[in-house]
Design a protein around this nucleic acid. Sequence first.
DNA 1: TCGTTTCATCGCAAAGATACGATTAATTAT
DNA 2: ATAATTAATCGTATCTTTGCGATGAAACGA
Lengths: 110, 110
Amino acid sequence: MGVTKTDIFSREDNLLARFAKALGHPARIAILRLLVQRQACICGDIVDEIPLAQSTISQHLKELKAAGLIKGEIEGAKVCYCIDETAWEVAKAALGTFLDSNTDCGANCC
Amino acid sequence: MGVTKTDIFSREDNLLARFAKALGHPARIAILRLLVQRQACICGDIVDEIPLAQSTISQHLKELKAAGLIKGEIEGAKVCYCIDETAWEVAKAALGTFLDSNTDCGANCC
DNA sequence: TCGTTTCATCGCAAAGATACGATTAATTAT
DNA sequence: ATAATTAATCGTATCTTTGCGATGAAACGA
């Protein structure tokens, strides 16, 4: 298969998983970190900073855009990427709430 | 390929990506939510609650354990799973700090 | 003891993810 | 006009993930 059965899970769980999946690769974390540090980034700058092929970086950017975490603006021949604050806030809230759950399992086990 | 080049990224970025990847499937989110709600869970209870095959659930549990997010205690023929608070706190701190980054890209773009 | 329950593991099939080079289209520089 | 830069896309190879049924091993119950 290789296909996730999204239909059997809640919308919230699917949302959380989609954001987490987008963050689930070190290259994408590194890209987002660059965008945060420099406030915005020309695609070529990212290619220079991360030792992966240009086509590979472009693919990761595409996934981050599909997840809504970034947006790109065409500036002539170049493309300027930056964090999409709206979706970023949604992701922060969703993951934050989830990770803030009470994990204490009492004295009954473990 | 299909193989991630972990060696070219920082330890922190790989750590973040590993946690996020573990959270990057709705079944694993659902499992963690069950463990949080019930404080602990017998494996069979999870299989009853989530409409996936027992072997599939077992595999997701294995991945969550590999990521350190849960731990299992053998109780006779059954196995009791619960959140591993130590790693959970690490994940919460790492993801929390990352997502709390200032995402304002000023007026220069986008 | 023998069957049952419980869960992990194996083997398999289908689909997705990762990475690269080559190509393409658009803009910019000469 | 021509060449160079920039970034997306295509095609391809390989590895990983997802999912299931079947099998195994361990503990439990009758």
